[in-house]
Amino acid sequence: MTVTLFVPCFVDALFPRAGISMVQILERLGHRVVCPAEVACCGQPPFNSGYWDEARPIARKVLQQLKDAEAVVIGSGSCGAMVKKFYPELFAGQPEAELATQIANRTWEFSEFLVRKLGVTDLGAHFPAKVTFHDGCHGLRELGIKQSPRALLGRVRGLELIEMKEAETCCGFGGTFAAKFPSISTAMGEVKCNSALETEAEYIVSNDSSCLMHIQGLLSRQGKPLKTLHLAEVLNHA
């Protein structure tokens, strides 16, 4: 199958290793991977801030680029939710309405694609460490992703998964919210970091780099040794 990989803007610029891992995993599984050069962002920042008119040109570009894709894989629950759940709403009543719905139906978040579409859970990965998993809220509640990442982590050799308390509580990133309301965002992040630290895990793994950017930012400012890692990087670890 030809997989069109949509690498979100912040993964592209800040966490390329997560994107590279996704490419390598998909190719190892025997799929052809293409990455449209022209799409950089799904349009979520303006969309979430209420600037839907400004979000549409960005989203329209994405729709054009993904028009012929057989399957679209997005390496972030948040951007996945944007395409799968919010594009149809953003384009409701617009000429692209139907295209948006079609593409939404062909789009998968990375872990869901592996587990539900490809039916793969064991990627032969080896990662001897204690990890705890952070569910990004968009993936968890908009897309209902809870089990796929755990199914995948469960097959990683040497990996011990320890669930944290209040695992489903938001980390406080929330896109522009983190910058518009830094005191609240930080307080929420502290709660999340403390829950993660309590597990005594060495890594916080997530399928959403944006949450991890916020969590890592807090942890390293506080000089905590806990590290963050995208799920794909763990799964790509031999």
Binding site: V115, T121, E142, G144, K146
Partner: peptide
């Protein structure tokens, strides 16, 4: 929110 489908063959929630 989307329902949390179980993964076939994988014990979980």
């Amino acid at each position: 929110p989307a329902s949390h489908l179980p993964v076939p063959g994988v014990p979980g929630l």
